[in-house]
Write a protein that binds this DNA or RNA. Structure first.
Lengths: 246, 246
DNA sequence: GATGATCTATGTATCCGATACAGAGTACGA
DNA sequence: TCGTACTCTGTATCGGATACATAGATCATC
């Protein structure tokens, strides 16, 4: 099996740096930097994260950071992993219960840190935290009789669902803010659509808007809608398991 | 019902600009600009899209663009909508067949234009193209007995699935490229994981890697894996419909 | 315990890209 | 025939990432 070189970022995330024998002892470590960056992102959003602001937060000169990360992009990638919490503990609950919890927890931390959404696109999960999430999901499905490939697909799909759901909620909030209207996101959204749609080109959508489907859905997003789609997925998984074991 | 002001970008996407009575006739229109920007993105990726490069492509001065878009961000939003193709035609096929097609087509154009993935986060769909996709999905579900809210949720979920799937495929390709290995993305990914994981912290994942779950899945991504997850969703939807009509 | 190789931390300099602003030209309405 | 409202463009600024070079610290080795 050919050895693949570890991308430098990945090595750093796992602390696999070859520690040097010479020179002054480093005065910080990647963790401190990443924490500072996360703190800033939480406070000011991703735009607030500049090499200079992070450096100030840590208390060093801007260029010092480059001793620990290869570039700003690298920093962002490491942040994306470090900002995730630990996955829910696996305590023998049935897979469906655990995965529901898992998916919801996944969405929830994305809601709390919307800037993560912008980062999720960059790399496949390869940090300690993300992989722990993956590992737990695989474990939850261990005695379903499903193969690894299937289990991985399921975990990916659920994580994707959580991401999407969070992204949607966040996007709606943004529009609400942009329109600087106090009206709830979805209602405003429906309202905007109503102004713009022509009934011929968009018959069904127009009908939906007229039926106030968006207005009604306004509070859905948080709970019912999430559960709704999730249950679709879980039902599908359930069916798969049953099929496989019959 | 309170009137919500249309965000300027939205107005522009729908050509709702108030055309001025005075002054020289505009020498271009938003469409030309957006097309140029898309051409550049296709060729050089999103990083290649600079106000200056777009201006050059169109053949005007950089600052001229600002007469048509309020900012670069606005341009990106409009691009995101314009870059989508038309949804598959609705020709009376059963909903499941159509939505399968719809979702696949959705994923496919994202695969062809990976830069769209980075933009999807910015706004909820409010452009003519995106909304046509939504409209068609709603229409496909018209005689299932489902309400508008449910249909919208379904469409959203499926679109999210397509996005996620495309993002995953793309991310894997990126890692493959970054490792500058000729090995297929997923295999290389599994390989990397193998180097980094400790079996105690990640028991299931380690097992999966050892079982070469990622290596085996290498070609999956394109077909089987996609269909797999999609069928989970569709099965769930099917169940919902049956339940509702009983 | 001196010396040089190897590191770290930092300051300065550059480069790039978005956009504010101001001026010059143009078409329509009166 | 103006004046006004608009378009196009060049120049200027500003913010932010990062290359590069310097100064000081530490350890290995003799």
């Amino acid at each position: 099996m050919a050895e693949h070189r570890l991308p430098p970022v990945v090595a750093r995330m796992w602390g696999r740096e070859t520690s040097p024998r010479h020179g002054p002892r480093p005065s910080l470590d990647l963790g401190r930097i990443v924490d500072a960056a996360i703190r800033i992102a939480d406070r000011d959003g991703l735009e607030g994260v500049k090499m200079s602001s992070v450096a100030t937060e840590v208390g060093v000169a801007t260029m010092s950071l480059y001793r620990y990360v290869g570039s700003k992009d690298e920093l962002l990638i490491v942040m994306a992993d470090a900002a995730a919490p630990e996955p829910p503990v696996l305590d023998g609950r049935p897979w469906r219960v655990y995965l529901t919890d898992w998916t919801r927890a996944n969405r929830d931390f994305l809601l709390g840190r919307p800037w993560l959404l912008a980062l999720s696109q960059h790399t496949p999960p390869a940090g300690p935290r993300s992989l722990r999430w993956l590992d737990r999901a695989l474990a939850a499905l261990a005695d379903t009789g499903l193969g690894y490939g299937e289990r991985i697909s399921i975990a990916t799909t659920l994580a994707g669902y959580a991401t999407r759901q969070a992204a949607l909620a966040h996007a709606l909030n943004r529009t609400a803010a942009a329109t600087d209207d106090s009206i709830a996101g979805l209602a405003g959204y429906g309202d905007i659509l109503g102004q713009v749609l022509d009934p011929d080109g968009y018959p069904e959508l127009t009908a939906a808007v007229r039926a106030n489907a968006f207005g009604v859905a306004a509070e859905w997003i948080d709970n019912a809608d999430f559960t709704f789609g999730l249950d679709l997925l879980l039902d599908g998984i359930q069916a798969l398991i049953t099929r496989g074991n019959s």
